[in-house]
Simulated assay, not measured.
Amino acid sequence: MFISNLEWRMFCTSMRFYKKHGYWPNIRQPKTFNEKIQYRKFFQKHALFQTCSDKYAVREYVTKLVGDEFLVPLIAVVDTPDDLEFAHYGDNFVIKANHDSGSVFLCRDGQFDQNYITKRLAKKLAENSGKKRNEPWYSQIQPKILVEQLLVAQDGKLPEDYKFHVFNSLGGQKFFLQVDYDRQTKHSRCIYDEFGQVTEISLNKPSNQQPLPQIKNYTKMVELALKLAEPFDYVRVDLYNLDGHIYFGELTFAHGSGFRKFTPQKYDREWGDLWELSASF
């Protein structure tokens, strides 16, 4: 019996999905949030998916919509690891690949392993992360390496990463805010509703039910997240807040590639109900 490459990839994805979530996904007619991520990966197309997943090209998108004052200062852009000039970047900087998720190297107080970073980057730039994750928009990006300023708060800490899960529908915009705490020790993740109230939701990490701290310019953060999310039926908008100055992080179209488990599981369906899938365009 002949099976197409698409059907085989969907079957393999469904097997992994079942092991993670405990139910077999209906990718072609999705209902839950994680099913709809799988549907997007295989069937939904959008003219901005590639541009906004490219960590370099997305800077122009952000500039046009909200202004370049929200961009992390860019130090350099190069094509290969051999083009990196570590001695010219100061003591605090970030090196990242523009075409995948996770290739980020923090260089702080002059402490970094140049050999390790260049070897890892060479490996990452040779990978087709879109094919590996079934997220085709990454495959279309021309790989580059970005060097950005490392954001450090006045107290010496790295700024919090605020992830806004934004749903756009005919009824308007709705969002949930994800905040991770103590990444290096007892990693927890709290999900807050649009009114800033902590929910019972755990999303792949336990929640410590911590109330949302007071955040400088939080209203402006929400405004920016909703603006950047406008063209999409769902997107995750990541922002940083450095002593009240807001910086853009990234746009993510397939949170956790659709393999992040909700507890209680009912929220997988509730978030799915919020996501009104649009036709590809």
Rank of each mutant, 00 (worst) to 15 (best):
I117N: 07
I117V: 02
T118I: 11
T118D: 11
K119T: 03
K119M: 06
L121K: 06
L121H: 08
A122D: 08
A122Y: 05
K123S: 05
K124D: 14
N128F: 07
N128G: 12
N128W: 05
S129G: 11
G130D: 15
G130Y: 13
K131A: 14
K131D: 14
K131R: 10
K132D: 05
R133Q: 09
N134S: 03
N134W: 09
N134H: 07
W137Q: 04
Y138H: 09
Y138Q: 14
S139H: 08
S139W: 09
S139F: 11
Q140E: 15
Q140K: 14
I141Y: 02
I141Q: 01
Q142T: 10
Q142I: 06
Q142R: 04
I145W: 05
L146K: 06
L146Q: 07
L146M: 07
V147H: 01
E148G: 04
Q149A: 00
Q149V: 04
L150P: 02
L150I: 03
L150G: 02
L151F: 11
L151E: 12
L151Y: 11
L151H: 10
A153I: 09
Q154T: 13
Q154Y: 06
Q154R: 06
D155C: 14
D155N: 15
G156Y: 03
G156P: 10
P159I: 07
D161N: 15
Y162D: 03
K163P: 00
F164M: 01
H165T: 00
F167Q: 02
N168A: 03
S169T: 12
